[in-house]
Amino acid sequence: MGIGMAGDAASGTMISLRSAGKQFSARGTTLRALQPLTLDINAQEFVAVVGPSGCGKSTILNLIAGLLRPSEGSVRYDGSEVTGPNVRVGYMTQKDTLLPWRNVRDNVGLALELRIRSASREAAAARVAQMIELVGLAGFERHYPAELSGGMRKRTALARTLIYEPETLLMDEPFGALDAQLRLLLMDQLQRLTQLRRITVVFVTHDLAEAIALADRVVIMSARPGQIRRIREVPLPRPRDIFKLRFTEEFAQLYEELWNELKDEVAKGTDNR
């Protein structure tokens, strides 16, 4: 598999889950993480997956990333079956998993060091500088993760993920641990970047407002064991002003409609503890 190129004009199906489900067996018992679900994600589409804790949203990402094999059904990426780690995607986890012994510059440049990419030292250094500039961390190249705030670490992780220009981004509640202001800023930055580079995004979150603000389509998941409850188009025009969006009429209507679906599942989720 070669280096992913950011989006072609054709918008066909990029990711296809067909009755893909996952269960884990440990010591005789089986735990069902994801009920077989069917979902198609088109190229350059931004899809948000919302649901209560434990509904399997992260499992969906792991299946697409090739870190897990489905117990049933199939997972296809750009037409071919996902059989191993999917190197055409970028994966941003919930925790920022930066390497603590490397500074910002070396963390961001990590992907470019790998054999699969063989970028020249100068070209790599230039890309790293560009990425750091892009996420607004210029001047912090030599800082170590322990010296950075949570928001800065997230931005470093974002830069690290984007630097090898994956055509698809998988994001698992990336902004969860940040304060509200920072979250809005990063949301804004994310949607601009992904629109500009025409990246396909699968964005997992428990925050419905975040999902509606960013996505072209929102998938509502049911409580554990998860399955798709509802898929809703978000017809809000792009480019979107993330900061003002929450106060518009259309947003409020969408939110109310989807919240009615979601709240039952959240309630079930908290009951089934």
Binding site: Y91, L110, L114
Partner: peptide, 20 residues
């Protein structure tokens, strides 16, 4: 998780070993 992220980036086993 760190090892997973590297796998998705395309790291081979010995690269994960050396770097993580």
């Amino acid at each position: 998780d760190m090892v997973d992220v590297l796998k998705v980036m395309g790291a081979q086993w010995h690269e994960s070993f050396r770097k993580v």
